[in-house]
């Protein structure tokens, strides 16, 4: 017990850990909420797509000497809206989603070679973008991450009721005058923002683990959508904290890897519980 207490205190001695915990909590909260709705709407593949788009967006910024976050947000939201526009009722099919993001990724490879040839540190920059660098946050970046996460949470709460209605019974919702298509667009824009936030915590390639995995955990544990939102957010935050503490304790374990491992373990536990209950 005293070890845990000591560890808890030691963690807060370091400014970079404080920033990581604060930003990580806010981002995980937003991702947990968004991710649960993604699972409910059957749009997990969008999260997969966003991971690749985030990579290209961040590298585009780096190639032009801009802040990586600018490209992250612009690329994720723009591709989210394009994909929403390609499908009926603000949803894109998996095949078209896959085609768009695989080309965007090809573009990312080109940008990676540009960054590598101009700066010489392309390998390191590429790895940071792909696998995250939450321990490198400063006060300003933390503030921005928290503010944007708060905006995502507020926006999601504002549209939660009609979005859940449109998700659970699209045809009836449309007949009742719920703007299904508009909600589809709004949701994918929010997914884009959440993905760009997650990319800063766990990296572009791993952001699916922070978005979809807590959502899946919640889906396994409860059938009530509001309880599901809460469980998903809690699972995401718990994974982030446990992952950060774990990687603080075991320095060879990168924080993004630890967060994904914990989130996956929670998912595996929820799946087992679900199967036991189903018997």
């Amino acid at each position: 017990m005293s070890d845990v207490l000591f560890l808890g205190l030691a963690v807060f001695d370091h400014a970079f850990m404080r920033y990581a915990l604060i930003a990580g909590t806010a981002v995980a909260l937003a991702c947990g909420l968004v991710g649960y709705l993604m699972v409910l709407r059957g749009q997990v593949f969008m999260g997969d797509a966003m991971g690749h788009v985030a990579f290209t967006g961040a590298l585009a910024s780096l190639a032009f000497g801009l802040d990586a976050r600018l490209g992250l947000f612009v690329a994720c939201v723009a591709v989210g809206l394009v994909l929403a526009g390609m499908g009926d009722r603000g949803r894109a099919g998996d095949t078209e989603t896959g085609i768009v993001f695989s080309w965007v990724l090809g573009l990312g490879v080109l940008l990676l070679s540009v960054v590598a040839s101009s700066g010489g540190a392309g390998g390191a920059a590429g790895a940071r973008v792909l696998f995250g660098s939450i321990l490198g946050l400063d006060a300003a970046r933390t503030t921005w991450a928290v503010a944007i996460a708060a905006a995502v949470v507020i926006a999601l709460i504002a549209i939660a009721r009609p979005l859940l209605f449109a998700t659970l019974d699209e045809a009836v919702a449309a007949a009742r005058g719920v703007p299904v298509r508009l909600l589809g667009f709004a949701f994918l824009a929010i997914v884009g923002i959440a993905a760009a936030e997650a990319a800063q915590v766990v990296g572009a390639l791993l952001l699916l683990g922070l978005l979809a995995t807590p959502g899946g955990t919640a889906w396994r544990l409860t059938t009530s959508p509001y309880a599901g939102l809460a469980v998903s957010a809690a699972a995401a935050v718990a994974s982030t904290w446990a992952g950060l503490l774990l990687s603080f304790e075991v320095p060879s374990l990168p924080p993004s890897v630890a967060i994904i491992v914990v989130a996956s373990a929670l998912y595996a536990g929820a799946t087992l519980l679900d199967r036991v209950r189903a018997r």
Partner: peptide
């Protein structure tokens, strides 16, 4: 369907995380 894709997504993220860990190790 929804939760099946969550399983696939989790397998993917976990596998990539482990891959990154192996590379750093």
């Amino acid at each position: 369907a929804g939760v099946e894709t969550a399983t696939v997504g989790t397998i993917q993220a976990l596998a990539l995380a482990i891959g990154y860990l192996l590379v750093t190790l």
